[in-house]
Simulated scan of single mutants.
Amino acid sequence: MADDQRKEYEITKTEQEWQKQLTAEEFNVLREAGTERPFTSPLNDETSPGTLVCAACKAPVYDNKHKFKSGTGWPSYDRAIDGQVERDVDYKIGYARTELKCATCGSHLGHEFDDGPRDTTGKRHCINGVALDFVPEGQELPPLNRD
């Protein structure tokens, strides 16, 4: 998409504003579509009930009840919270993949594959743990980060 055709998100900031707010690793993944090293996220083992929010804008994106062990080294979910994650096409590695982005701020979360649990959606949302913050069930969700 050309720069003059970029989608406007509910939360839009300059790259400099995002850099001030995010750690270097978060910025690389969320704003530059990088990938964290597999098996490094503490969220890989997080199985408690709760909500995963975008680490950039704090919008709720995944319910932990839809998490499953994929063995890939990244947190994996069979679906997102309705309307909270958008799909785009990513050609970074030479062929088309389905990129998953936060629908509120456009941050890169990960990719979608068709090798998820067949007894549910059949989809695997392979998500960078650094792109998410876990909010345990019963704890209030943080307000959207508009600043």
Rank of each mutant, 00 (worst) to 15 (best):
P136W: 15
F113R: 05
Y62M: 12
G110C: 02
D133K: 15
Q5D: 14
K58P: 04
L132H: 02
Q19D: 10
T47S: 05
H111E: 12
E10N: 10
F134M: 14
D45Q: 15
T47N: 08
E140F: 11
K69Y: 14
Q84R: 11
A80M: 09
M1Y: 11
N128D: 11
E140A: 15
Q5A: 09
F68K: 05
N145V: 00
T98V: 12
G94P: 00
E112A: 02
L132M: 06
E8D: 14
V135L: 07
Y62H: 09
P60F: 06
G138N: 14
G83M: 04
D82R: 14
K65H: 12
Y95N: 05
K67W: 02
T47F: 10
P60Q: 07
N28F: 06
D82E: 09
S41L: 06
N145E: 02
K123I: 15
R124S: 05
S48K: 12
A131P: 06
S107C: 08
H66V: 13
N64I: 00
R118L: 01
S76G: 05
C57N: 04
L43N: 08
T40F: 01
C57T: 00
H125M: 12
I127G: 03
S48V: 01
R87P: 08
Q139E: 14
G116R: 10
F113V: 03
Q5H: 13
D119E: 14
E26C: 05
E17D: 08
L144W: 02
N128G: 06
N28W: 08
D88A: 15
E86F: 00
D3E: 15
G116H: 11
D45F: 13
E99R: 07
V130Q: 02
E46D: 09
P49N: 14
P38K: 13
S107R: 04
Q84L: 11
D45N: 15
